[in-house]
């Protein structure tokens, strides 16, 4: 496994607690949340290929974006939230990439937003699925490895 769950927790905490100043607790499972969610996606390529997904409850995405931009959450537009979420997943993926041997390229971030959707990466296997609770909202960091034969 290129990276273990504990290392992912350290990377996410550095971003979430150190950079945004938000509290964060690792939890075993995410409880269902009847809300929109925002998912930031970055692909890693090179000798190791995979995908990093940061899945945030919609309320948390707004809260984290507000903390990042030092703005009132109610004043944020959709584009600002997408931009901030893209940067957050980019930071996390960049730090994961730096710890994975032979990973050489990072894609630009993609951000998906909606309700009741499942985002899949064909030909990939989930290596890590680490859940967090932040300010009462769910968040999950997933690392997928692209199958060599895919």
């Amino acid at each position: 496994m290129p990276i273990d769950d504990d290392e992912i927790v350290r990377i996410v905490e550095a971003t979430w607690v150190g950079f945004l100043g938000l509290s964060l607790d690792r939890v075993n499972t995410s409880r269902p949340e009847d809300d929109t969610s925002v998912t930031g996606v970055v692909q890693i390529a090179g000798g190791w290929e995979g995908t990093v997904l940061l899945v945030c409850a919609g309320g948390l995405a707004r809260m984290a974006s507000a903390a990042m931009l030092a703005m009132n959450a109610d004043d944020l537009g959709a584009e600002e939230i997408r931009d901030a979420m893209g940067e957050l997943v980019n930071m996390i993926a960049g730090n994961i990439k730096a710890r994975v041997p032979n990973a050489t390229h990072l894609s630009l971030p993609t951000v998906v937003e909606g309700r009741d959707y499942e985002l899949t990466v064909p030909g990939s296997t989930v290596l890590n699925r680490v859940s967090f609770l932040c300010e009462g909202h769910n968040m999950q960091l997933r690392v997928l490895q692209r199958d060599r034969a895919a």
Binding site: T15, A93, G94, N95
Partner: peptide, 26 residues
């Protein structure tokens, strides 16, 4: 940048960069 591997730092310095600060930064 969020990409702060030793290889990237070496590449940056070799091409005339003065430093590389890692995101998230302080």
């Amino acid at each position: 940048t969020s990409e702060a591997s030793a290889e990237m730092k070496d590449t940056a310095l070799a091409h005339g960069a003065q430093f590389l600060i890692t995101k998230p930064f302080t």
